[in-house]
């Protein structure tokens, strides 16, 4: 535990700023998607809204993809939650905190297990899927979805998993790979790895 705390302390100021800006991007995405979200809620409640749920999960996973250190996803999600509380969130403060913790509790151990070295397509798509169920279960109790018909719950979970896989895992990997050779990520693990590979090649 002490070792983990020390690792968390090793996040540099630049990495904290990156995490903050990725959290800000989530705020922008939330604002851009708000009309679509409302339209989907009107047409098909939580079921249709679930189709875009992956887009709201990208920022923490992208921080982990770029920084590749313990705590990167946890702190990014928590910064995002705190920011949402400060500006006001449609689903309340508890949902912001709980969602952040539910995503982080999956992402952090998964990348800890692979020693922050495996960031290929299979790992990213799997992480995107794995992040989905825990928050869905917590939200089901929080917002009362648990009372819905079982079939609705299963279909919604399946939609969320696909959204998590493609819009979170897949899009994060795609974005990360497009950015890895740019100068913006050179101070971070992703950029350093890309530079190393290029030099070796």
């Amino acid at each position: 535990m002490n070792a983990m705390m020390k690792q968390w302390g090793k996040l540099t100021l630049m990495e904290w700023v990156l995490m903050a800006l990725l959290a800000a991007l989530n705020g922008v995405a939330t604002s851009l998607l708000s009309h679509l979200n409302q339209l989907l809620t009107s047409l098909g409640g939580s079921m249709l809204t679930s189709t875009i749920v992956g887009l709201y999960m990208i920022y923490g996973l992208l921080a982990m993809y770029i920084i590749r250190k313990p705590g990167a996803a946890l702190f990014t999600y928590l910064i995002g939650a705190l920011m949402q509380i400060m500006v006001g969130t449609s689903y309340g403060p508890w949902s912001a905190i709980a969602a952040a913790l539910c995503y982080a509790v999956i992402v952090e151990p998964l990348f800890f297990l692979v020693k922050y070295k495996k960031f290929d397509w299979s790992m990213m798509l799997f992480t995107g899927v794995a992040m989905t169920p825990l928050w869905y279960i917590v939200a089901a109790f929080m917002f009362g979805y648990i009372h819905y018909e079982s079939l609705v719950l299963v279909i919604t979970l399946a939609i969320r998993c696909v959204s998590g896989m493609l819009l979170c895992g897949g899009l994060t990997k795609w974005l990360g790979d497009r950015l890895k050779h740019t100068r913006y990520v050179r101070p971070f693990a992703l950029g350093r790895e890309a530079m190393g590979l290029r030099e070796k090649g």
Binding site: L11, L13, W16, V17, M19, A20, L21, A23, A24, L25, G27, V28, S31, L32, F75, L78, I79, G80, L82, M83, M86, V87
Partner: peptide, 20 residues
């Protein structure tokens, strides 16, 4: 670092929204 990171994030939301 954590609290100010949230403040930085908040500061950049309108700027990035305009850019978007």
């Amino acid at each position: 670092k954590f609290a100010y990171a949230a403040a930085v994030a908040l500061r950049f939301v309108p700027l990035l929204t305009r850019e978007a």
